[in-house]
Nucleic acid binder design. Sequence first.
DNA 1: AGCATTGTTTCACA
DNA 2: TTGTGAAACAATGC
Length: 262
Amino acid sequence: MPEIVEVETARSVIEKHALDRRIERVDDQDSYVCRPHLAGEIASALLKRSFVAAHRIGKSMWLELSGPDSPTLGLHLGMSGRIVVDGFVGGDPRFDGLDNLDSIWTRFRVDFADGGYLLLFDKRRLGRVQLNPDLSKLGPDALAITPEAFRSRVGRSDAPIKARLLNQNVIAGIGNLLADQLLWEAKINPARSSSTLTKSELTRLHTTLLSCTNDAMQKGGVHTGSLIPHRTAGGVCPRCGAALLRSKVGGRTTWRCSREQG
DNA sequence: AGCATTGTTTCACA
DNA sequence: TTGTGAAACAATGC
């Protein structure tokens, strides 16, 4: 997906352009993306109301609806989702096809009374639209977590540090690319047991997390990280020139510098 | 043709 | 109890 940076962009698009507009029509027919799907359940919850706030923790968004006893609308971009409101786009920067918003890749759509729209464009179809999503297990948001909480939560486990960073219940928002990027920046081996990291290493990792996400936000996505283009066969460390090594950590393809993250 | 994929969930197993 | 690895999910890109 869309990691925390892309999701925040999407949330921001919604906040700026989709609030306080009367919802006139809803297409929730994709029963895989929209769930649980009791024919039109989502549609009837939204019709004649409006979105009044857009929130996010990690990679999960939820929208508040006007009116008493309204549910919230959960949005998750999955592996490839984008949010489009009128012409404004937020989310996964890969793939084209946005020139055809009526295609099968539009998995969910809201039309406003004023003629505008909000939609979820998702080629991979692993995104989710859901009423009252359960977000109670999510850890603190990666952009908001304090250094102290970061150290205690992330450093507590015997799991590999990368697996720990990817665990959304520990800290919410870090995905595979961002994890590789920040472990490389901080010169820490992704496979090291989290509990062997020193306090100063954890502090450095947290600082790096902030600079990486900030940087990615400026440049338009986590794919702009300096390590990312080198995560390929024969790739070398853009910092020291040593070979990059490919492995599997936390179930995900992992690249690290053979010299600096040995 | 075959494999990999910026994500999440589930399950068998150590 | 924790953690891991693999599989499943869906569909596209290389």
